[in-house]
């Protein structure tokens, strides 16, 4: 059994009485591309910062490359690349000076790869970082990170606010590294993630709702639609795995988060709606899965808050 590149156990971070991250347990296997998704404020950046030893956990543990996150400092960072949307850079340096400065820090720095990435990203060496566009700055950050061939690449919202062309270039840069590097990234860019992530974790309100392989997730979710007698009464208790259930006349539509086979789902539907007919099953995009989860959880939260107010 291989040691996971990242493993967290019951990781919790409190800010005063507020819980930013609650009992997060996840594992990232070597060579995988793990995408962490979730709405704003879900705790994605906090989780990454805890892993990177930028913050300390209130309780629980995180291990990165077999080391406790508290040890992620100094020479250990020779093997970890980190790029964040909000990361500050030495603005008064030119791209060339920035890369020349970083080169001696890394024994594994690949100068040929640096040259290639500079050419691929068309980065001007003589421009100061402060005078670069957002996309160009992100490219400079990528070059400075990919050039030392890190064993683990941690990316916090790397594509946020970038135009599609730059986004594609950066993703291509990442795709070229898949296999030699484990990638852990958080992003809102679900369409792009879907194309190259091997694993996905969904974080909401500081809790990890699910963490699984991309194929398993795609297989688990289906858009289900069927017809019932217009006069049929609505079932009061629907399964929790049915998300965003909609009745429209005789048509019932929902997103099944526990799909395994059509036969099983049909049998399940018919126990609740005996007259169900014309059943159709469609796979869901990552975006649809994300939205279904987010909306459902928001609805549950609103209900519980409403109940608490009453």
């Amino acid at each position: 059994m291989t040691t996971p590149t990242i493993a967290t156990h019951a990781l919790t971070r409190m800010y005063g009485a507020q819980t930013a991250l609650k009992d997060v347990t996840l594992s990232v296997e070597p060579g995988s591309v793990y995408a962490l998704v979730g709405p704003n404020g879900a705790g994605k950046t906090t989780l990454i910062q805890l892993m990177m030893n930028l913050q300390s956990a209130t309780s629980g543990t995180a291990e990165v490359l077999g080391l406790a996150s508290g040890q992620i400092r100094g020479a250990v960072l020779n093997r970890i690349g980190y790029v964040a949307e909000t990361q500050e850079m030495p603005d008064s340096m030119t791209v060339g000076a920035f890369l020349s400065y970083l080169r001696p820090f890394y024994p594994t720095w690949d100068y040929a790869l640096e040259k290639q990435l500079l050419a691929d990203f068309a980065l001007p060496l003589d421009r100061e970082l402060q005078h670069l566009s957002r996309g160009m700055r992100m490219k400079a950050a990528f070059v400075s990170t990919l050039s030392f061939r890190p064993a683990l690449l941690v990316l916090d919202e790397p594509f946020s606010g970038l135009d599609p062309l730059v986004r594609d270039e950066l993703i291509q840069g990442l795709l070229d590294r898949i296999g030699e590097t484990t990638i852990f990234l958080s992003s809102h860019d679900l369409a792009e993630i879907e194309t190259f992530a091997s694993h996905i974790g969904y974080l909401e309100q500081g809790s990890l709702i699910f963490s699984e392989e991309m194929t398993s997730l795609s297989n688990r979710f289906r858009q289900v639609e069927f017809r019932i007698d217009a006069c049929a009464t609505r079932a009061a208790d629907l399964p929790e795995s049915w998300l965003e259930v909609e009745h429209s006349g005789s048509c019932v539509r929902f997103k099944d988060s526990g799909f395994s086979t059509q036969e099983k789902t049909i049998a399940h539907i018919r126990t609740i709606f005996p007259g169900a007919s014309e059943l159709t099953f469609e796979p869901l995009s990552l975006r649809s899965i994300f939205l279904a989860n987010a909306r459902t959880n928001r609805g549950i939260r609103a209900k519980s808050e409403h109940g608490a107010t009453k």
């Binding site: 910062q49 913050q55 100094g74 820090f105």
Partner: peptide, 19 residues
């Protein structure tokens, strides 16, 4: 403050600097 020690977003904190 060229290597600022306060805050979470400095580039150098995730580079192999020995304090």
């Amino acid at each position: 403050q060229a290597e600022r020690l306060v805050g979470l977003n400095q580039f150098w904190t995730t580079r192999p600097y020995e304090w």
